[in-house]
């Protein structure tokens, strides 16, 4: 519980909370990005360079930009939607509480019961690469195939039919 951890946690929580409560969709995305950056900084603080930097690369560099691009492509009026109505808010609250309970129980019973012995494994880029290419090669390949299929599908959807769209 160092000062930097508290600071980063505060940034992350503020960002994600603002992402839920702000009215303007673009502000929500920017706040979410702040939360993502805070999370990445937490990873970096824990010494997981690869995960932290990938977090920034993927979530800030790609996901946030994608969301932002979708907003720019669509009409501006839709970007100013009001927060959800009361029933959805209630169900959302229930889901969040349930999820929190599950996570809290898992963390409290899981980690604290078994003490981490010895030195923590070093999550260097090299170690991650070796794990991906040897132990987890099959899941990696399957994900690759899935993403390729998604890419081709998106391309097919986007292609104009011949004869149309002059």
């Amino acid at each position: 519980m160092t000062i930097s951890f508290l600071l980063l946690a505060a940034i992350t929580i503020t960002g994600t909370a603002a992402a839920m409560s702000l009215k303007n969709a673009v502000h929500c995305i920017l706040a979410l990005t702040l939360g993502m950056v805070g999370l990445a900084a937490l990873y970096l603080q824990l010494g997981a360079e690869f995960v932290g930097l990938t977090q920034i690369l993927v979530y800030v560099g790609a996901v946030a930009i994608l969301a932002v691009f979708a907003i720019m492509m669509t009409r501006s009026r839709t970007s100013e939607t009001a927060a959800g109505s009361d029933p959805s808010r209630f169900s959302g609250l229930v889901t969040a509480l349930l999820l929190f309970t599950v996570l809290a129980v898992a963390i409290c019973t899981g980690i604290s019961s078994q003490t981490l012995g010895g030195t923590p494994p070093e999550a260097t880029v090299h170690a991650v690469g070796v794990a991906l290419m040897q132990r987890f090669i099959l899941p990696l390949e399957i994900i690759g195939v899935l993403l390729t299929a998604a890419l081709i599908g998106a391309g097919m959807l986007a292609i104009e039919e011949k004869g149309e769209g002059r």
Partner: peptide, 12 residues
């Protein structure tokens, strides 16, 4: 990776 990750924040 750091270079490209931080560089991608320029877009934002």
């Amino acid at each position: 990776l750091f270079f490209f990750a931080v560089g991608s924040m320029v877009e934002l």
